[in-house]
Amino acid sequence: MMSNEPKHWLNEAIARHARLTPAVAGLLKNVLNRHSIEYLSIDGRTKNFSSAEEKIRRKKYTNLKSQLTDLTGVRVITFLEAQVNAISQLIRTTFEVDEKNSLDRASDLGEDKIGYRSTHFVCTLGTTRQSLPEYDALSDLKFEIQIRTVLQHAWAELAHDRSFKLGGGLPTKIQRKLNLYSGMLEIVDGAFDEIAKEVDEYKQAIAIKTPTQLSDTETNSLSLQRYARELEEQYGIHLDIPDIPEDILAEFKAFGLSKIGDLRQIASDEAVAPGEGSRGGIDGCLQGRPRNGSAAHPLDDGPRQSKGITGPDRGIDTENIVGLDHAAKGQRRPLLMAGCRS
């Protein structure tokens, strides 16, 4: 049992930490948003009295102020390992970090071991915030920040959930299998990081391609967005294309539009800029929205009959999909690169 003096200190400390926890979580959200770092969640919690008392007794703490550093705990869950590193750097510039009590479990494990990985920082708000009224009496309090990827978080939750009993001390055969799966999870975590880097590198590569070089580029969601930027400059229009639906990409390829150059050949002024105030043309079709007050988009559900073009019959009105010019010596030449007529 704790004596009255430590109990009094702990009650006062918990009350102050109840103010600190949302302040730290809010600061982290603002900093990450300002630096455009994506994250899944940022959550904070303040230990209650019974939980703190149990830890003090179990750890045999004698100096509560210096040893009890997790009355406030904030957890940041990211998508990629690269984001963990970026957030770690920002934490060091945003707060005062107690390096002695902070740790990186991945580094502690070393290169030859696998297991639970997470990055923990013990921090204070720092002296620079002492004069701010919203941080009055909070700047000297220590708190912990934990950073994990989504996969690291899932593994940690399973390993520490007593109902699953995935902690240490398992039978040798089961423990070996557990270690194997932990290693596989680590590989996947790293693979996602590599893929994200390759996507960024691909974007950078096509961003500097000339129109001729871009013509030889595969038609995909990234190259189409790059081509859309080119059309914006060429026609002085704005194309609101945050993402390219997979069904549109599938239709392009089904009709032989496998490269950006194939789209250039069927593009026309009418297709790209159908008229002032119109929402037809490329941006409408790529996003799959109704055009010019029409009741439905050509790719909506419902029975349709393919007409006027040779190609795979997907039950789609292909005249609305690519547009046809009947004036060119009887030939039906596709007009609309995006698949909608204004």
Rank of each mutant, 00 (worst) to 15 (best):
Met1Tyr: 04
Asn4Ala: 14
Pro6Trp: 08
Ala13Ile: 09
Ile14Leu: 07
Thr21Gln: 10
Pro22Lys: 08
Pro22His: 08
Gly26Asn: 12
Gly26Leu: 04
Leu27His: 06
Asn33Cys: 09
Ser36Ala: 15
Lys47Ser: 07
Phe49Glu: 11
Ser51Cys: 09
Ile56Leu: 06
Arg58Gly: 02
Thr62Ser: 09
Thr62Arg: 12
Leu64His: 02
Ser66Ala: 10
Gln67Gly: 02
Asp70Leu: 06
Thr78Ile: 03
Thr78Gly: 00
Phe79Asp: 05
Glu81Val: 08
Gln83Trp: 01
Ala86Tyr: 03
Gln89Glu: 14
Leu90Glu: 12
Ile91Gly: 04
Thr93Ala: 05
Thr93Lys: 03
Thr93Val: 11
Phe95Ile: 03
Val97Trp: 02
Glu99Phe: 01
Lys100Asp: 05
Asp104Tyr: 04
Ser107Arg: 14
Ser107Cys: 12
Glu111Trp: 04
Asp112Glu: 13
Arg117Pro: 06
Ser118Tyr: 00
Ser118Asp: 00
His120Lys: 04
Thr124Asp: 00
Gln130His: 08
Leu132Met: 11
Leu132His: 09
Leu141Arg: 06
Leu141Trp: 05
Phe143Asn: 00
Glu144Trp: 01
Ile145Cys: 01
Ile145Leu: 02
Ile147Ser: 01
Val150Met: 14
His153Arg: 03
Ala154Cys: 09
Ala156Pro: 10
Ala156Trp: 07
Ala156Cys: 10
Leu158Met: 13
Gly169Pro: 01
Arg176Ile: 09
Lys177Gln: 15
Asn179Thr: 07
Leu180Ser: 12
Glu186Ser: 11
Gly190Ala: 04
Gly190Asn: 15
Ala191Lys: 14
Ala191Asp: 13
Ile195Gln: 02
Val199Glu: 13
Glu201Ala: 10
Tyr202Ser: 10
Gln204Gly: 11
Ala205Phe: 10
Ile206Tyr: 03
Ala207Asn: 12
Ile208Leu: 10
Lys209Ala: 10
Lys209Gln: 15
Thr212Gln: 12
Ser215Asn: 15
Gln225Asp: 10
Tyr227Lys: 06
Ala228Trp: 07
Leu231Ala: 01
Ile237Thr: 09
His238Tyr: 12
Pro242Lys: 11
Asp243Tyr: 11
Pro245Leu: 09
Lys253Arg: 14
Gly256Pro: 07
Gly256Arg: 06
Ser258Cys: 11
Lys259Gly: 02
Arg264Asn: 12
Gln265Gly: 05
Ile266Thr: 07
Ala267Ser: 14
Ser268Trp: 01
Ala271Gly: 14
Gly284Phe: 08
Arg289Gly: 04
Asn292Met: 11
Gly293Tyr: 07
Ala296Cys: 07
Pro298Leu: 02
Gly302Thr: 09
Gly308Val: 04
Pro312Cys: 03
Val322Cys: 08
Gly323Ile: 06
His326Cys: 01
Ala327Phe: 15
Leu336Trp: 15
Ala338Arg: 04
Ala338Val: 08
